[in-house]
Each structure stands twice: as structure tokens, then as C-alpha cells.
Simulated assay, not measured.
Amino acid sequence: MDQFQHNSAGYLANHMARLFAAGLARRIQPLGLAPAQFMVLLELWHSDGRTQADLTAALDVEQATMANTLKRMERDGLIRRLPSEEDRRARLIHLTDRARALEAEAKTAAGAQNAQALSGLDAAERATFIALMRRVIGNMQRG
């Protein structure tokens, strides 16, 4: 790693994200999940019955990426699409019983990945690190 990479927030954030994703993938793969599916499930476990557009915006991903992820999740029996009662043109994404049953185990796996990643930090450092990441994300979302 050269000096630029060593001091580049973007390079380091990207490297860290890839390592997190790989570790998470290893931990949730036995559950039949991929990281992209897990992110969608986190949103739906928090608030079930959302539109594809809402999920796309919440996760800040491309519409085509979300469409492909949801297609795989529907194929795998994790979600179902139902017409909205308020707007018959809209279809809402709902969790299946299978997806609901995976919540505790998937969150435990993700928690283990986070614990491993943050294991060298004390509680105050962890809190500061998380707070700083939130601020940086906020900065970038504001453009």
C-alpha cells in the first residue's frame, strides 16, 4: 500500500467495505443468504411491506441492482410481492415466514462479523468510529 492509499479515506473505506462484505458473506452463506439480500432483509425486518423504489432509495443502490436482488429473493422464497391496498398500481415487498425465521440467526452472524472487525477497539473508540462513519456518510449524501 503506497502513501496515497494509506491516507485515502475512499481507498480505506472501500477496502474495509469489501472485507466486511466478504466476512458477512461467509457467515450468512449457511443461511442461504448473500450480503445484498441481507441488506434488503434488514430494511424489511424493520418495516415490512415497502415498494421497490423505497428499498432502492433506502439502500442507495441502482434500480436494476435492486430488481435483480428482489428477483433472486422471490425465487428463494424470502419475499413476495403483493398489490398495495392504497394504490393498486403499486406492488409491495413483503417478507415470507422463511425470511422472518432467519432474522435472529442472520443478525447474530452480522453481529459476530462486526465484533471481529471492531475487536481491537475499546467501547469509546467503537462509539467514536461509528459516529464518524455516520457523519462521513451524511456528508456524502448531502453531496
Rank of each mutant, 00 (worst) to 15 (best):
R18K: 10
R18T: 13
R18F: 11
L19A: 13
F20V: 14
F20I: 12
F20N: 11
F20E: 15
A21T: 15
A22M: 08
A22T: 13
A22K: 08
G23F: 02
G23S: 13
G23Y: 00
G23I: 05
G23H: 09
A25D: 14
A25C: 03
A25V: 03
R26V: 02
R27E: 15
R27T: 03
R27G: 04
I28G: 02
I28R: 01
Q29T: 10
P30W: 03
P30C: 01
P30H: 00
L33W: 05
L33N: 07
L33E: 07
L33Y: 06
A34Y: 03
A34K: 05
A34L: 10
A34N: 01
A34H: 04
P35C: 03
P35K: 01
A36K: 04
A36P: 02
Q37D: 13
Q37R: 03
Q37P: 08
M39I: 07
M39N: 09
M39E: 15
V40N: 04
V40K: 00
V40I: 15
V40Y: 05
V40W: 09
L42M: 11
E43D: 12
E43W: 00
E43Q: 13
E43V: 12
E43T: 07
W45C: 08
H46C: 07
H46Y: 13
H46N: 13
S47H: 09
S47L: 11
S47W: 01
G49W: 03
G49I: 06
G49N: 02
G49L: 06
R50Y: 05
R50T: 06
R50F: 05
T51F: 04
T51H: 01
T51L: 05
T51P: 06
T51I: 06
Q52R: 07
D54V: 11
D54A: 14
L55W: 08
L55S: 10
L55I: 14
L55M: 13
T56C: 13
A57F: 00
A57R: 09
A58I: 12
A58V: 08
A58Y: 00
A58F: 02
L59T: 07
L59S: 05
L59F: 00
L59G: 06
D60W: 00
V61T: 10
V61W: 07
V61R: 07
V61S: 05
E62T: 02
E62Y: 01
E62Q: 12
Q63G: 00
Q63M: 06
A64C: 02
T65S: 11
T65N: 07
T65I: 12
M66G: 07
M66K: 03
M66F: 05
M66H: 04
A67G: 08
N68K: 09
N68W: 06
N68T: 10
T69V: 15
T69P: 04
T69R: 10
L70V: 11
L70Q: 08
K71W: 07
K71F: 10
K71D: 14
K71M: 09
R72E: 15
R72Y: 06
R72Q: 12
R72H: 11
M73N: 04
M73C: 07
E74Y: 00
R75C: 11
R75A: 11
D76Q: 05
G77S: 09
G77N: 06
L78S: 10
I79M: 03
I79Y: 03
I79N: 02
R80Q: 14
R81I: 08
R81F: 08
R81G: 06
L82G: 00
L82S: 11
L82V: 14
P83T: 11
P83F: 00
S84C: 15
S84R: 00
E85M: 06
E86D: 14
